[in-house]
Design a protein around this nucleic acid. Structure first.
Lengths: 203, 203
DNA sequence: AATACCGGATGACATCTGTCACCTCGCTTT
DNA sequence: AAAGCGAGGTGACAGATGTCATCCGGTATT
């Protein structure tokens, strides 16, 4: 009997080790490699051709979402499960667009991880139902690229003038984009707008 | 031979299960209970009287820092290790004030967890050296309680007027406190000030 | 009783933000 | 060629924000 071969990618080393230990307790699952970031994960997938890749989203070098897209492109026999803290509709949508087969939250019981690995290995999809619902009715990302760039910087505390300089635009234009983003998000100022966008995974 | 009895507290169920699995792989350590929040952890410590409590900081019901203080007060035979994502000097300082014997970051290798448990069990302290240094020279929290309250709300995107109403103060006073906080932190506006304070664990 | 101190309030001023109507220029579409 | 569109810019205005000097009323200090 051969075990399901899994690679785990996660930037917090302690959590990475712990997740691997968790999966190793299952008799039908083997962790054949561990990655601390997206780039490393991609290389390890190429080398080991695992059945399943379990990956976090927010990682240095390469985000879990682009990693998922790369893996689908270059190693379609490996199925991807996104495992993240963030119940953000925007993340879920992007994950599915990137070809991920599973989207699992870190606040679910730990037993669900092994179960998800098995399901996905069998060709099924695994998506948190509450989150899927929320993703559905919170609609798609309404922001344009410019708005996103600008809102991001505003959320860091930069002034309109600073942002203008950084992006080689006029200050008035920055204010226009921010105004537009604020109204799209139903916020009452740039800070709240940035918060809302972050919470939905649009930033 | 009796194993070191450990309780783990962590609000992300998946991570909780994984950490427990990790510790269970050690022959000399046993996880006798798991808690999903601070209040639960305190109750379980009372019931099991473990040797060591490993706890996250940011948890619902009761934060890991107040939990540490409670445990020192009521169950001094249990030593506390704080295990967190955040390399924030302010957190470290508060953790040590609360009587924690260890402060470990989630991006350290997973092997260090078991090692820290053993060390602390033997009565030693375990503190990340880089972080300790940083805590030293970033100085103590310069903010007053009022400033903290107000800066917190400002960071959520509330306007001076809203904050004033919420705290039953005048709007001018709010602006004065914010101005003071901004200058103490060397920021150039409320948003940046809130970011800096958060990053240092002062918020 | 005089002093100092502290939390809070005022008022004035300069600057930054948010909004809106309108303009320009380059690129599709037909 | 004409119309339409989209990214970016301008100008004006109201309101929010940041700064400062100053004031007020308790509460310790001495």
């Amino acid at each position: 009997m051969k075990k399901i071969q899994v690679i785990v990618a996660e930037d917090q080393a302690m959590v990475l080790g712990a997740l691997a230990a968790l999966l190793e307790t299952e008799p039908d699952i083997a962790v054949c490699a561990r990655a601390a970031n997206g780039r490393e994960a991609l290389a390890l997938v190429a080398r080991h051709k695992p059945d399943v890749l379990v990956t976090d989203i927010e990682m240095p070098e390469m985000t879990g979402l682009t990693l998922a897209a790369e893996v689908r492109e270059r190693h379609p026999q490996t199925r991807v499960i996104i495992l993240t803290t963030f119940a953000r509709p925007g993340y879920l949508r992007r994950a599915l667009d990137a070809g991920a087969k599973g989207y699992l939250l870190k606040d679910r019981p730990s037993a669900e991880l092994a179960e998800a690995v098995r399901r996905v290995y069998q060709g099924l999809r695994v998506v948190d139902p509450d989150l899927a619902l929320e993703a559905w009715d919170s609609g798609p990302d309404p922001l344009t690229d410019r708005e996103r760039q600008i809102l991001w910087r505003a959320g860091e505390g930069k002034s309109s003038g600073e942002i203008a300089e950084e992006l080689h635009l006029s200050e008035g234009t920055i204010r226009n984009y921010l105004s537009e983003a604020i109204s799209k998000l139903g916020a009452s100022n740039r800070v709240e707008a940035a918060r809302l966008a972050r919470a939905r995974g649009w930033l």
